[in-house]
Design a protein around this nucleic acid. Structure first.
Lengths: 222, 222
DNA sequence: TCAAAAGTGTTTGTGGTACACCCATGG
DNA sequence: CCATGGGTGTACCACAAACACTTTTGA
């Protein structure tokens, strides 16, 4: 049988956050060829001594300083000529981060910015395909499982949560139905505290740690 | 940044078929270490000149002689010590084959047999985990999309299809409800021909090629 | 007292579930 | 005419969808 293969493995990570009433992804501008000066999603080679999940978490931490957020394997892309340097296979992950910190360029990059998923710039490799696939998956998951609050701070109001869903799904949702279904799903609970804002104060909610992450509910939003 | 990594990439493929009123997977018995003489799912190194999908299709063809069946990427497993020979990452696929041909041992194997997913033997590496993950995914897909007929011959009766679903889901289904929902989903249509059997002849159906493979229907069997 | 956002119930429609009998053929 | 599997309809229930007004606070 075949012995081995000059094949390299990277992880790339689509980092989602809600900013400016928009769903955005973190892109970095590449300093070196190939695709010098082109936007790309963060990623890098898998080191022999780290698991794929660890590699993804490390990339996320290196680019954003964020740890302990929702990370999930997306898909593995292995088309032949993805990368002019040789045979590259990338295991793509996506992450949902609640607090989009200010980001700064790393050593391999000349810039790092949050960009709207609805208006992506030109991107390196097949990264536009990867981001779009991640968006599709995020929407799908939002309908079936309750991951939306992973993009919000620990405590949030129902209006904020609904607003997040509307940005991601790209459609308006009915307030009463939204509240009923989210609460029936039983994945969040009141903190007891209130959020003071412009109008009437709002109850704050948080994720119920006891709830299973992948609640296989009925569709939340069919 | 890190340069590269002594990381090897394989594809492994979980091949499902319905045999003997049972859901079975094709396992091969390894001829060489590691895990000499242990059952494993077919797989091998990805060659530099083939895509991941091509590698999976090639492995399937080498082991079963079957082409042009439903193959789908499952998950990429990259734990550190999966393989004693070094750092191995495997991109797992699963395939649904309609006609389980007789299989025979290949050059690297001493045996090849269909084994029940409900009664797996001891397996090499993390292959039991991979098979169980594939089963979970197959069941999940069966509930939401209509892939069941990929395990049947081109033409089939509704009773045969229902029987397939029952074997995979592990529960009895109501005949009238099953028929109504499958037909409403609109993915199969009558061929016009009949199947002659022991009792009343049954209408034959086949897949409607025009139907999208991944029909995102309501759950077929919630 | 006004602006701004939070909060709350009911009606109607659709789809899921449960359930039992007649039909067409071969032997 | 009997055995075998194929084929069909309805009543009930639960959940989804549509829809508008009242409440609480700060300015």
């Amino acid at each position: 049988m075949a012995k081995t293969s000059e094949v390299f493995v990277t992880v790339d990570i689509v980092i989602f956050a809600l900013r400016e009433d928009d769903l955005q992804v973190l892109l970095i501008k590449r300093k070196y060829p190939p695709f010098e000066n082109t936007w790309a999603i963060p990623g890098g080679f898998v080191q022999p001594q780290e698991s794929l999940e660890d590699a993804a978490a490390r990339e996320l931490y290196e680019e954003t300083g964020i740890r302990n957020v929702h990370i999930e394997q997306l898909y593995t892309f292995g088309q032949l000529h993805r990368d002019p340097r040789g045979r590259m296979i990338t295991v793509a992950y996506f992450a949902l981060v609640p607090k989009p910190l200010a980001v700064q360029a790393g050593s391999d990059t000349t810039d790092a910015q949050w960009k709207s998923v609805y208006d992506l710039p030109q991107t390196a490799f097949d990264h536009a395909e990867i981001v779009n696939y991640a968006l599709k998956r995020l929407r799908y998951k939002l309908e079936y499982t309750a991951v939306g609050f992973q993009l919000l701070p620990l405590d949030f109001t129902l209006s904020e949560l609904q607003h997040a869903y509307e940005i991601i799904l790209g459609e308006a949702l009915d307030k009463r139905n939204f509240r009923r279904r989210i609460l029936q799903a039983g994945v969040i609970e009141e903190t007891g505290a209130m959020h003071m804002g412009d109008g009437r104060p709002a109850k704050l909610y948080h994720y119920r740690p006891s709830a299973v992450a992948e609640v296989k509910t009925r569709r939340l939003f069919p």
